[in-house]
Design a binder for these strands. Structure first.
Lengths: 179, 179
DNA sequence: GTGAACATGTAACAAGTTACATGATTGA
DNA sequence: TCAATCATGTAACTTGTTACATGTTCAC
């Protein structure tokens, strides 16, 4: 799936500027499983405008550049539906954190402890965030499902890290004591 | 984290050929959170050989090309430790499946049902796989932790999909009946 | 005899990220 | 006054993937 499809998907919820699309991607209901940068969003919108998949409306603003609000067209909606009518690529999950934990015996104890707690804090923050989105997702079936999925997975991660923390810290303490 | 670090990490568990590294990445204990293709592994090994991070040993084989078995050097081990001594990048999770489920109202019912069940089957297979790796990970602390993490997360995904399935299918049935 | 697994390697290509360029406003 | 937020856009760069090239053995 490419950035074009991603933008069309966001726009299917309502019109938005490139800037707002990026915000929705990184802060919105879907932040946990999609990602895109300005450098890919803006060109994608320009291309789709030329292809008739979206329309623009310039919103004048004092001082700032005109806000270009994009809206999806019928053609864009059809394009989106078609782009989604394929078997989705397998989920991709990449974790440098887990790679470090796998090889933690090679790393300084303080680093492992710091990385562990940072990761746990980040997961908790993300979980809180999607829990705060719960209400706004309630009335949309797709959003509700996706929100529930995120809560289930992030919740499991947080719980696992909380449970395993003692073991990690204990082995660290033991190793430190043995020195 | 790049492919070089990934290969060094695998090699820190023992010598291996490029082919075997790829197998370990896609079938091994870590398959759920790392990934790499031959097109990136082979060049990485060549570069690291020139940098003195690994050594090679050609294993003659009848018929097949010589198997080039790589082993990590002390310099490579130091390089690996240094590469891992940074704050890890945030976990990246991308899911076209969730994106389709988010927008499922745009998609044909049969497609949603097929995609859902395929995804569930794939998650179950992956979970079974890492459960089958559990024993071989028991005696290595890093592997045990990572294996447990994978089981926790995949288990939560599978359970959620199992629970939500009725709701998805029911809404599909309702929509179909309303036509 | 056919496809999968074993085994290495290259080159063209795709896709997206980072950094740069610009500049006003708003709140601490 | 300094950082953050709003706001768009381009170009160089990174990184890795896909497809190709080659050839054997083993199991069905």
């Amino acid at each position: 799936m490419n950035v074009k499809t991603l933008c069309l998907g966001i726009l299917s919820f309502g019109e938005a500027s490139g800037y707002e699309i990026k915000k929705k991607v990184e802060e919105g209901l879907f932040s946990h499983f999609i990602d895109a940068s300005y450098g890919s969003i803006y060109p994608a919108l320009t291309v789709m405008l030329n292809e008739g998949l979206v329309t623009v409306r310039a919103e004048e603003q004092s001082g700032r550049p005109d806000k270009k609000v994009y809206a999806i067209t019928d053609k864009g909606l059809a394009h989106l539906a078609q782009a989604l009518s394929v078997t989705p690529a397998r989920d991709k999950y990449k974790s440098e954190f887990l790679f470090q934990m796998l090889l933690r015996e090679l790393l300084p104890r303080h680093h492992v402890a710091a990385v562990y707690d940072l990761h746990l804090a980040q997961l908790r923050a993300e979980l809180e965030h999607i829990e705060s989105c719960r209400c706004s997702a309630e009335n949309h079936p797709g959003a509700r499902f996706v929100n529930g999925y995120g809560r289930a997975v992030l919740g499991a991660s947080v719980r696992y890290l909380e449970e395993a923390r003692d073991e990690i810290l204990e082995s660290l303490a033991t190793a430190a004591a043995a020195e």
